[in-house]
Amino acid sequence: MVLDLSTIDFIDSSGLGALVQVTKLSQNKQGSVQIVTNPRVTQTVKLVRLEKFLHLHNSLAEAIAATTEG
């Protein structure tokens, strides 16, 4: 699954919690969630130290490519 958050200006703890839940559910089904982000969203994700758990990408093409890897 690819989520394009590149136009989002703000993400709060509820939004981050939802991303974590979706990612966990996807992993339980042997899937993955790739997230297209922007500097503001990336900064927030890094602030709460989720950048290693959430798969962040700078472009839609990069995120789509990641879905076909491995």
Rank of each mutant, 00 (worst) to 15 (best):
F10Q: 08
T67N: 11
T42C: 02
L47C: 06
G15W: 07
F10E: 03
M1T: 12
D12Y: 09
V20I: 15
V45A: 03
L5C: 10
N58E: 14
H55V: 08
T68S: 12
T68Y: 11
T42W: 00
F53H: 04
K29S: 12
T23H: 01
L54V: 07
Q34W: 02
L25K: 14
T23N: 10
S13M: 09
E69N: 05
L56N: 06
T37N: 06
M1Y: 13
I35N: 01
Q34D: 00
A61M: 04
L3W: 11
L25T: 13
F53E: 02
V36R: 08
V22G: 06
P39R: 02
I11Y: 07
T67D: 02
I8F: 14
L54H: 04
L56P: 10
V45Y: 03
T7A: 11
L3V: 10
P39M: 02
F53N: 00
K29A: 12
D9E: 14
V20Y: 04
A63W: 09
I8G: 04
T7S: 12
Q27M: 09
L5H: 06
T37K: 03
S14V: 09
Q21N: 12
M1E: 09
A66W: 08
F53C: 00
V48F: 08
F10W: 12
V41C: 08
E51I: 01
Q43R: 15
F53G: 01
P39D: 07
A65W: 05
L25S: 14
K24G: 04
G70H: 11
V48C: 09
V33G: 02
V22L: 13
T42V: 00
L47Y: 12
G70N: 13
Q34K: 13
N58V: 03
V2S: 09
I11H: 10
N28C: 05
A65D: 09
K46P: 00
N28E: 14
L16V: 13
M1A: 13
S59E: 01
A66T: 10
E51P: 00
V2G: 10
Q30S: 14
L25Q: 15
